[in-house]
Write a protein that binds this DNA or RNA. Structure first.
Lengths: 131, 131
DNA sequence: CAACTAGTTTAGAATAGTTCTAAAATAAAC
DNA sequence: GTTTATTTTAGAACTATTCTAAACTAGTTG
């Protein structure tokens, strides 16, 4: 059983052909940010034909099983981040590109843990920049 | 010339009937968060019939002229905030409600001013909570 | 491995939020 | 009051995403 197959099984997901192909693209190289559409095109470019419905399925199921993190940047598109550790983002408004900011670079205090008795699921920080 | 009319003119906008009605709803009471749909329904409830196309027009033009701020929370809908001063948000995922966090309550350091020579337009912080 | 079961993929239809179109209405300027 | 530019509107169009239901596949059981 290879690394990617293990990664999927550990997340409680069946390692299907499509999920493994997508995982190979997403998780074998450097960390990346994708949209459903950008992922679909990149796979087509590599002669990997997976239906758009499956791309959406896989992105959603990977997100709900903790393999990806969804980022709300632009109300017209969902971005997904292969880096699931706590971190923040620069967003370059002209180019649409994202860049990570580590929690060492940017401090938030007090880091909220609870609100009205509810758990904090996630702290999203987006610094929007021209250019 | 009343306050709302002045507010629109100062922003470089013609004070049309529809813009004044929407301004009255948005800017005469306490600060609020709306979506196109929530604003449309609230106006219908008050027997103010403005087409949905105009609601979208007005929200967009108010945002581009600095009377509203758009918040990226949920990729399926755009939220607009009548509070245009720097502040942050709690987002209650189950109810879809927003609550403000003042910059006194939550500190970010170092507050970014520039990135790669580009100005920082805006620092968005969203704390997602269950409930 | 053959049969079975539950989960997955797919094309295409459906949906939801938003923008576009072009005609009628209105605000501001002359 | 006439003219001109802007705004509003209904409905069509568009785009990102989800749904549907049939075909397929992974994992399980005998």
């Amino acid at each position: 059983m290879n690394d990617l197959e293990k990664k999927l099984r550990d997340a409680g997901l069946r390692p299907t052909k499509q999920r493994l192909l997508i995982s190979h693209y997403l998780f074998s190289g450097p960390q990346m940010h994708v949209t459903a559409d950008s992922l679909y095109s990149e796979l087509i470019d590599r002669d990997i034909n997976i239906s758009l419905a499956t791309i959406y399925n896989v992105l959603n199921v990977f997100t709900s099983h903790g393999l990806l993190r969804e980022i709300s940047i632009d109300p017209s598109r969902s971005y997904f981040d292969t880096n699931i550790k706590r971190h923040y983002h620069y967003y370059f408004e002209k180019t649409g590109k994202l860049e990570d900011i580590s929690i060492e670079e940017l401090k938030i205090s007090p880091m909220p843990e609870k609100k009205n008795g509810f758990d904090v699921n996630c702290v999203d920080v987006v610094i929007r920049v021209d250019g």
